[in-house]
Amino acid sequence: METYTMMRHFADSWGLLAMALFFVGVIFFTLRPGGKASADRAAHIPLKDED
C-alpha cells in the first residue's frame, strides 16, 4: 500500500475521530464552570502596572 493511500485511510477514520474529540475538548474547556474568572484574570495581565 502506498504512503498516500495509507495516510488517507488513517485521516478518514482515526484522524477524524481525534479531531472531533479535540474540538469537543476545546469547547468543554472554554465553557467549563469557573473558567470565566480565570479568563478575566488572564485578560487583565497586560494592563497591570509593572511598578
Rank of each mutant, 00 (worst) to 15 (best):
Tyr4Pro: 03
Leu31Arg: 01
Gly15Trp: 02
Ala18Phe: 04
Gly34Glu: 08
Val24Asn: 07
His9Trp: 00
Gly35Ser: 05
Pro46Glu: 12
Tyr4Leu: 15
Ala42Trp: 03
Pro46Lys: 10
Phe29Asn: 02
Phe29Leu: 07
Ala18Tyr: 02
Lys48Trp: 06
Asp49Ser: 14
Phe23Arg: 01
Arg32Thr: 07
Lys48Val: 01
Gly34Phe: 07
Ala11Thr: 06
Met6Trp: 05
Arg32Gln: 08
Met7Asp: 06
Leu17Tyr: 07
His44Ile: 08
Leu17Met: 05
Ala42Glu: 03
Asp40Ala: 14
Leu47Thr: 15
Pro33Lys: 15
Phe29Gly: 06
Thr5Leu: 12
Glu2Thr: 13
Arg8Ile: 11
Ala39Ile: 12
Gly15Lys: 01
His9Leu: 01
Val24Ala: 00
Met19Ala: 11
Ala20Met: 06
Leu47Gln: 15
Ser38Pro: 08
Gly15Thr: 05
Phe28Ile: 15
Leu16Ala: 15
Asp49Val: 07
Ile45Cys: 05
Met7Phe: 13
Arg41Ala: 12
Phe22Arg: 12
Thr5Ala: 15
Asp12Met: 11
Thr3Met: 14
Leu21Ser: 00
Val26Ala: 07
Thr5Val: 04
Arg32His: 11
Ser13His: 09
Arg41Ser: 06
Ala43Phe: 05
Met1Gln: 01
Pro33Gly: 14
Pro33Met: 14
Arg41Cys: 05
Thr30Phe: 03
Phe10Cys: 01
Lys36Gly: 07
Ala43Ile: 02
Met19Trp: 04
Ser13Leu: 09
Met19Ile: 03
Gly34Asn: 10
Ala11Gln: 07
Phe29Trp: 12
Ile45Gln: 03
Asp12His: 03
Tyr4Phe: 15
Trp14His: 14
Met19Arg: 06
Phe23Lys: 00
Leu47Trp: 12
His9Ser: 05
Val24Phe: 03
Gly35Gln: 12
Thr30Tyr: 00
Ala37Ser: 10
Leu16Gln: 12
Ala20Phe: 03
Asp40Gln: 14
Arg8Trp: 10
Pro33Trp: 15
Ile45Glu: 04
Ala37Asn: 01
Phe22Glu: 10
Lys36Val: 12
Gly15Asn: 04
Tyr4Val: 05
Leu47Val: 11
Ala37Phe: 04
Ile45Val: 08
Met1Arg: 08
His9Phe: 00
Ala11Trp: 05
Ser13Glu: 13
Trp14Gln: 04
Trp14Gly: 00
Phe23Pro: 02
Leu17Val: 09
Phe22Met: 11
Ile45Thr: 11
Ile27Trp: 06
Leu21Pro: 00
Leu16Phe: 04
Arg32Gly: 08
Trp14Ala: 13
His44Met: 13
Val26Trp: 04
Arg41Asp: 12
Thr3Gly: 07
Ala37Cys: 06
